[in-house]
Write a protein that binds this DNA or RNA. Structure first.
Length: 697
RNA sequence: GGCGCGGUAGCUCAGGCGGUUAGAGCGUUGGAUUCAUAACCCAAAGGUCGGGGGUUCAACUCCCCCCCGCGCUACCA
C-alpha cells in the first residue's frame, strides 16, 4: 500500500436547514472522528475539515417558512450544528461554512479555472419566470397540476402525491409559489459541466483503479452509474442566494449548491491553514478521504472527482468509505415526521452519556447495510458491555490495588515460578499477554480498513481478556498467602488498564480521560504514539506510582431513562413538526369560473377488469365500463391498490381527457384519487352504487 | 421493469477465490466465584447460512430462477 505523508479527512457538509440527528452521526461524523483520532494518535499529520452547507433553494424555502432571511436561517442552523458537534466531541480541526467569504472566492476561482479552459457548455433554454417578483423560478418554487395523477399542487420537480419526477414545463396551470401568479417562459443561460467527457477517465481511475480498495457498496453504485452513461450537469442556477457566477454576463446567476458545496472542503482547509493549505490538497503524498452517507456516493465518487480532475491541480479522493443508513426503532428516520433522535436533544437529556452514544452508534454502524437503533438495545449495550465488561474491569483493578497496596502501583519484577500456583499465574500471564498483543494488532488493522465496528469490538476484547486474567489468577485469594504474586498480577492488570486508556481514545474519549485521571497518569501521555505505532502492549504505569481514587466509568441505564426517551419519540410522532402541518394542506388554487369546470366530463364507472402493467411499478391497466363504452384507463395506483381488489369497484374518472399513450398503451381517461397527508391514495367513490356513466357535477 | 448493495443463531454482526463438527459478542439456561456497578469466569442450549433448482466427489461459499429489505432508475395525464 502506498505510503502517505499526511491526511486530509472530510466529513459530509451537513445542510443548514435543520438540526443533526443520530443518523447523520452514525453515517459520517462518528466514523470520521474515530478515524481521525486514530490517525492523530499515530502521530500522522491530518486536517479534519467540515462545515455547514448553506446554499441552495431549500435554504431559501426553509427561511421563508420560518419567516427569516436566508442569512438568519443558516446562521441559526449553522450555530446549532456547530454547537452540537462541539458538545458531542467530534474533533474537527475546523468547522467552517460555505457562506464565508473565503469560500466564495475559492469556489469562484475553481469555476473560473475550469471555465478558462473552455470546458463548460453554455446553453440557453426557456424557464419559468415570475414577472411580478422578477425572478426565475427554481423547480421547487413552481406548483401546478400533475400531468400524471391530476394532483393540483405538484411541485416542479416532483409530484408528492404520485411520486413522479417532473420538470416544471410538464405541469398544467403552473403557478409561482412566490407570488401566486402564473409564470411565463423566458430564455435563460446556464453553464453545464461535461461529465460525459470524463467517462473514459472515470472508468480508468475508479472502475479499474479502485476495484479492490473501495467498499463494495460504494464501488457497485459508482459502476452502475457510470455504466448507465453520464450526462452534462448544469452547475448554475437563477437565484439570489448563493455564490455569484464569476462572469460578466451572469447577473442573477449563482453556482448550483452541489457545485459549490464540496469545494467547501477546500475553503475550510484554506481557512484552517492559510499558508500551507495546498499541501493538503495538491500534494500527491496527501491522502484524501471523504466520510459520507450513501446518499452522497455519486457526488463524492464521480462528480466531485471529475471537477477536481477538470480543475487540474488537485489530488483525488483515495477512499470514500460511505455508510448506509441508520433506522430508528425499526423505521426510517424522518425529519418531516419528527421520527428522530436529535443530537442536541440527546445532549441536553443525557449530557453525561456521550461515550455511550458513541459506543452504541459505532457498534451498530451501518457499514454494510442499513441498521437499526433502538433504545432497548442502547440500554443493553451500555449495561452489559460498557458497564459490565469495560467499566467493571477498570474498577476492580483499581479497587484491588487500593485495597492491597494503598493505591500504589506494586513493584515490578519477574515473578519466580517457584510453586505450582505461581506457575499457573505465569501461564495465565503469558496467555493474556499473547492475546492482548494479538487483539491490539487486530484493532489497529480494523481501523486502517475503516472497520470501526470490528475495531471497537477488539478494543472491548482487551477488557474481556483482562477480566479473564483476573478470574484465572484470583489475586483476592492469593492475598492471604503470597503478596508478591498479588503485586505482580496487579502490576500487569494496571498495565492493561493503562493500555486500554490509550486503546479506547478513538471510541470512548471520555472514558480515556477518566482512566488516565484514575491512573494519575500524566507521565503516560507521551506514550500514546508508541502504543499506536508499535501496535502492541506497552509499559504504562511506573512502579510505586500513586494512583488516584477509583471512579466509575459508566453508570447503568435504568429502565425509566429509556422509557422516557421512547415516550418522547411517540409523542413527537403524534405531533408532527409545525412545518409539516403547514405542508399537509395544500394552498388553494387560483379561482376559476363555472365554464372552466363545465369543460370537465367527470363520470362514475365500474372496473370490469384490472391487471398490473408489465414492467411498471406504478401503473395498473383498468378496463372501465363508462356507461357509453368500455375503455382502457391506466392509473398510477399500483402501490396503493392491487389489480384484484380493483375489479368491480366504482371509480370516478375524467371521461373527456385527451387520450395519452403510456408504455405503449393508450389511456382513455384519468381516475380521480384523494391523497392523504401521508401520501396514500384512495379512490373517490359515490357512497352508494350508481349506474356506470353517471355524471358528476 | 432495469441496475447496485444486502438477507448467516432471539438480537447485532463475522466468515466464505467450494473442502474437517458454520463463528463472535450480547441475550437465555446451568455451574463456579466474591476483587468488582448481582458485575466477572466456565459451560451448554440455540442456525436445513431467505426459498427452489443446477454445476461438483464436495456449496453457506459458483451458476440460474424466485421472494424480502434498502438505494438509484424507467413508467405514473
Amino acid at each position: 500500500m502506498k505510503k502517505f505523508k499526511r491526511y486530509t479527512v472530510t466529513a459530509a457538509l451537513p445542510y443548514a436547514n435543520g438540526p443533526l440527528h443520530i443518523g447523520h452521526i452514525a453515517g459520517a461524523y462518528l466514523p470520521a472522528d474515530t478515524y481521525v483520532r486514530f490517525l492523530r494518535l499515530r502521530g500522522e499529520d491530518v486536517a479534519f475539515v467540515c462545515g455547514s452547507d448553506e446554499h441552495g433553494v431549500a435554504i431559501t424555502i426553509g427561511a421563508k417558512k420560518e419567516g427569516l432571511t436566508p442569512r438568519e436561517f443558516v446562521d441559526k442552523y449553522h450555530n446549532l450544528m456547530k454547537k452540537a458537534f462541539t458538545d458531542f466531541g467530534i474533533s474537527f480541526d475546523i468547522y467552517s461554512r460555505t457562506s464565508n467569504e473565503i469560500h466564495y472566492k475559492t469556489a469562484q476561482d475553481f469555476f473560473k479555472k475550469i471555465y478558462d479552459q473552455g470546458l463548460f457548455i453554455e446553453d440557453t433554454s426557456d424557464q419559468y419566470y415570475d414577472e411580478q417578483e422578477k425572478i426565475f423560478l427554481a423547480d421547487r418554487y413552481i406548483v401546478g397540476t400533475c400531468p400524471n395523477c391530476g394532483h393540483p399542487n405538484a411541485y416542479g420537480d416532483q409530484c408528492e402525491k404520485c411520486g413522479t419526477s417532473l420538470s416544471p414545463k410538464q405541469l398544467i396551470n403552473p403557478r409561482s409559489t412566490v407570488s401566486g401568479q402564473a409564470p411565463v417562459l423566458r430564455p435563460t443561460k446556464h453553464w453545464y459541466f461535461p461529465l460525459d467527457k470524463f467517462e473514459t477517465w472515470l472508468k480508468d481511475w475508479l472502475i479499474e483503479g479502485h476495484k479492490d480498495d473501495w467498499k463494495i457498496n460504494v464501488y457497485g453504485q459508482c459502476k452502475s452509474w457510470i455504466d448507465q452513461g453520464l450526462q452534462p450537469r448544469s452547475i448554475t442556477r437563477d437565484l439570489e442566494w448563493g455564490i455569484p457566477v464569476p462572469l460578466p454576463d451572469a447577473k442573477g446567476k449563482v453556482l448550483y449548491v452541489w457545485f459549490d458545496a464540496p469545494i467547501g472542503y477546500i475553503s475550510a482547509t484554506k481557512e484552517l491553514k492559510p499558508n500551507d493549505w495546498e499541501k493538503y490538497w495538491k500534494d500527491p503524498e496527501t491522502r484524501l478521504i471523504h466520510f459520507i452517507g450513501k446518499d452522497n456516493i455519486v457526488f463524492h465518487c464521480i462528480i466531485f472527482p471529475s471537477m477536481l480532475k477538470a480543475e487540474g491541480s488537485f489530488i483525488l479522493p483515495d477512499n470514500v468509505p460511505a455508510n448506509e443508513f441508520l433506522n430508528l426503532e425499526g423505521e426510517k428516520l424522518s425529519t418531516s415526521r419528527n421520527h428522530a433522535v436529535w443530537l442536541h436533544e440527546y445532549l441536553e437529556d443525557l449530557p453525561t452519556r456521550k461515550d455511550e452514544l458513541r459506543y452504541v452508534l459505532n457498534s451498530i454502524s451501518p457499514e454494510t447495510k442499513d441498521s437499526d437503533f433502538t433504545w432497548k438495545d442502547y440500554q443493553q449495550k451500555v449495561n452489559s458491555e460498557l458497564v459490565a465488561i469495560l467499566g467493571n474491569f477498570v474498577n476492580r483493578v483499581m479497587v484491588l490495588t487500593w485495597k492491597y497496596f494503598d493505591g500504589k502501583v506494586p513493584s515490578e519484577h519477574e515473578l519466580p515460578g517457584t510453586t505450582d500456583k505461581r506457575k499457573k499465574i505465569l501461564a495465565s500471564y503469558t496467555q493474556a499477554h499473547t492475546d492482548l498483543n494479538k487483539t491490539v494488532k487486530e484493532m489497529i488493522g480494523a481501523l486502517k480498513d475503516f472497520k470501526f465496528r470490528e475495531a471497537q469490538f477488539q478494543m472491548m476484547n482487551l477488557a474481556r481478556i483482562g477480566n479473564k486474567f483476573l478470574a484465572d489468577t484470583e489475586p483476592w485469594k492469593l492475598a492471604k498467602e503470597d503478596m508478591e504474586a498479588v503485586g505482580a498480577i496487579l502490576n500487569y492488570a494496571l498495565t492493561v488498564v493503562g493500555n486500554i486508556s490509550m486503546a479506547c481514545e478513538p471510541f470512548l474519549p471520555g472514558a480515556a480521560v477518566s482512566i488516565r485521571r484514575q491512573l494519575n497518569a500524566a507521565a503516560v501521555e507521551n506514550k500514546w504514539k508508541e502504543f499506536w505505532t508499535k501496535e502492541e502492549l506497552i509499559h504504562t504505569v511506573p512502579q510505586h506510582h500513586q494512583l488516584n481514587p477509583a471512579e466509575l466509568l459508566f453508570r447503568n441505564v435504568e429502565d425509566t431513562e429509556i422509557e422516557k426517551q421512547v415516550e418522547r419519540l411517540k409523542k413527537k410522532e403524534n405531533k408532527p413538526a409545525a412545518a409539516m402541518q403547514e405542508n399537509a394542506v395544500k394552498p388553494l388554487k387560483p379561482e376559476i369560473v363555472f365554464d372552466d369546470f363545465a369543460k370537465l366530463d367527470i363520470r362514475v364507472g365500474k372496473v370490469l377488469a384490472a391487471e398490473k402493467m408489465e414492467k411498471s411499478d406504478k401503473l395498473l391497466k383498468l378496463l372501465v365500463d363508462s356507461g357509453v363504452d368500455k375503455r382502457t384507463i391506466l392509473s398510477g395506483i399500483a402501490k396503493h391498490y392491487t389489480a384484484e381488489e380493483m375489479v368491480g369497484k366504482q371509480v370516478t374518472f375524467i371521461a373527456n381527457l385527451a387520450p395519452r399513450k403510456m408504455m405503449g398503451i393508450e389511456s382513455q381517461g384519468m381516475i380521480l384519487m384523494a391523497e392523504d397527508a401521508d401520501g396514500k391514495l384512495r379512490l373517490i367513490q359515490p357512497n352508494t352504487d350508481v349506474n356506470p356513466g353517471a355524471t358528476v357535477s
